[in-house]
Design a protein around this nucleic acid. Structure first.
Length: 384
DNA sequence: GAACCGTGGGG
DNA sequence: TCCCCAAGGTT
């Protein structure tokens, strides 16, 4: 469907575009949020802190990032300190935050800045783009916020604000180039960093995905979607593919001293570099015990643990059942033996934290297993 | 372009 | 309960 040119303009007024940035910056000066990584008005931003926060904030909420940011900054106050850390330390500190490639790239980036840039981040978008884990959004964000460059980061918030302001009805992700172009047109010559943060604040607190607060929005008179009464329906999105359900069987292997076998996952891919309990592959077809045991790392007398651990990833759901096996002391296997009291010292993804909690709860003989898991377990056991 | 890559909270 | 989605990047 063709888009007429009138839609590429906020409201019918041709001068509206030029009024967006002044109106938004005036609003920002009054409603500016205090965030841990945000320099106060008049203070010089610290590029390391801006970069660290921007990477943590990728696809992650402000509330979630808060404590992680504080811990990272205390432990590694400078990019050189972070560069000197071990990758496993960084992964462990990142535990629970998700998208673990960010942690690996964060570490690589710190090393690159320390070793190849004298400990100073490049100040241009182009320079920043060459670093690991820094893509179009983060390069523009750091350039604008930390270095005052005229750059236009476009995140989910800004996509939404711009889609509404210009009533762009093209669905995402196809609309991304157009939204980026339109956002660039709005960016002022000065205060580009404040403008970007103002757009993001507006998207987070006023121009929200659902139930936008158009009555209190500083741009409401300039908003084409508001004029057409379609603000809440934008941006449109192309339908997403359904998430398949996968299944796996975990081998909970115990030594007489109570230690359990853990292994490190491959560096690349899902949960890369993190620790896990050994398991079968994760596939869409269900496993039966006899088949699963073929992929056990050791021979043992296996006992099925009641219950199931369920978890959702971005692109598939998974349920894990557990087989418990006891092996003699001195059993030699790939991996590390870890006592449950030391699980906290390992970089475990949330899925494996759930596995550990479930196993320890059931094996302790009390009702630590989630009620939901028990119900599902009964159903599954009855059908198998 | 499309798939892959986590997690937690809110409606 | 289920779906949405959050300051995206890499392949």
């Amino acid at each position: 469907m063709p888009r007429d040119h009138a839609s590429a303009r906020p409201s019918q007024d041709p001068s509206a575009e030029r009024r967006v940035a002044p109106a938004l910056l005036a609003w920002y000066d009054r409603h500016r949020r205090e965030l841990p990584w945000r320099a106060r008005a008049g203070e010089t931003p610290n590029p390391y802190r801006v970069w660290l926060s921007e990477v943590m904030l990728q696809q992650t909420t402000v509330v979630t990032v808060g404590p992680y940011y504080a811990r990272f900054l205390e432990r590694w106050p400078t990019v050189e300190a972070l560069a000197a850390a071990q990758l496993d330390e960084v992964l462990h500190a990142w535990q629970g935050l998700g998208y673990y490639a960010r942690a690996r790239n964060l570490h690589r980036c710190a090393k690159a800045v320390a070793a190849e840039h004298g400990g100073r981040f490049p100040s241009s978008e182009e320079g920043l783009l060459t670093l690991p884990g820094i893509g179009g959004y983060t390069a523009a964000a750091v350039a604008a916020i930390a270095f005052g460059a005229k750059a236009t980061p476009v995140d989910g918030n800004i996509e939404r604000v711009v889609a509404r302001l210009f009533a762009v009805e093209t669905p995402l992700p196809a609309a991304k180039p157009e939204l980026k172009r339109l956002a660039g047109q709005l960016t002022p010559e000065t205060r580009a960093g404040d403008f970007a943060q103002a757009m993001m604040d507006l998207g987070a607190t006023v121009c929200r995905p659902k139930a936008p607060l158009c009555l209190t929005c500083p741009l409401t008179r300039l908003c084409a979607a508001r004029a057409q009464g379609i603000a809440q329906t934008l941006p449109r999105r192309s339908p997403k593919r359904a998430r398949p359900q996968k299944h796996g069987v975990v081998f909970w292997i115990r030594r007489p001293d109570g230690a359990v076998l853990m292994q490190r996952r491959a560096e690349e891919g899902l949960l890369g570099g993190l620790m896990e309990f050994p398991s079968t592959g994760w596939r869409e077809a269900a496993w039966n015990a006899k088949e699963a045991i073929k992929s056990a790392p050791v021979e043992a007398e296996w006992h099925a643990l009641p219950g199931v651990v369920q978890h959702g990833f971005t692109h598939f759901d998974i349920d894990l059942t557990l087989l418990v096996g006891d092996v003699p002391a001195r059993t030699k296997l790939d991996g590390v033996w870890v006592k449950p009291t030391d699980f906290g010292g390992q970089a475990l993804p949330t899925l494996m934290t759930k596995v550990a909690r479930h196993a320890l709860g059931v094996l302790a003989g009390e009702g630590a297993a989630p009620v939901k898991a028990r119900k599902t377990a009964k159903k599954k056991m009855a059908s198998s």
